[in-house]
Amino acid sequence: MNAVSHKFKKLGVELLVVSCDSKFSHKRFVETEPLMEDFAQMMGADGNGKVASAFGVYLEEEGVAIRGRFLINPEGTVLAQEVLTPPVGRNVNEFLRQVEAFLHVAATGEVCPANWRPGKKTLPVHTDAEKMTGRVGDYITLEEIQS
């Protein structure tokens, strides 16, 4: 996550990382792990796994959190989540893409179709829903989606 954390900052999105380690361990981790150099995001210490449990990502037998990430809007609503077992890391670029898409939707009211990324075509706002039902292909082609 360190590789893209400055991009979240640029978008005005706060990033909180949480594990069941202590705050002392977090400090040591940032100080010693080369990949954590210049890491500038708050690190929560969820020793008893209470918060991980509340988010549904606590592995009780092992006392650890699994890789769950959540995007939350200013109203406190969870908009997106991804949960993976520990051995596989997340695709941070995909997370970033989703954040950009949700910010775009919130700012414009437009709808971001599959594979959308900034600069790509959105679906028009205020289109007669009935007109578009089953005819989304009139508004965007497969080639445009896959480009």
């Binding site: 996550m1 360190n2 979240f8 978008l11 005005g12 999105v13 706060e14 990033l15 909180l16 990382v17 949480v18 594990s19 069941c20 380690d21 361990s25 977090h26 040591r28 981790f29 792990e33 990949l35 954590m36 969820d46 991980a52 988010f55 990502v57 592995l59 650890v64 959190a65 699994i66 890789r67 769950g68 990430r69 959540f70 995007l71 939350i72 809007n73 200013p74 406190g76 520990p86 890391g89 997340r90 997370f95 954040v99 910010l103």
Partner: peptide, 18 residues
């Protein structure tokens, strides 16, 4: 985080990858 866009990322432990 009230009134802000924010993300929370859980990971299994320090000294693994985040």
């Amino acid at each position: 985080y009230k009134g802000k866009w924010w993300t929370i990322c859980f990971y299994p432990g320090d000294f693994t990858f985040v």
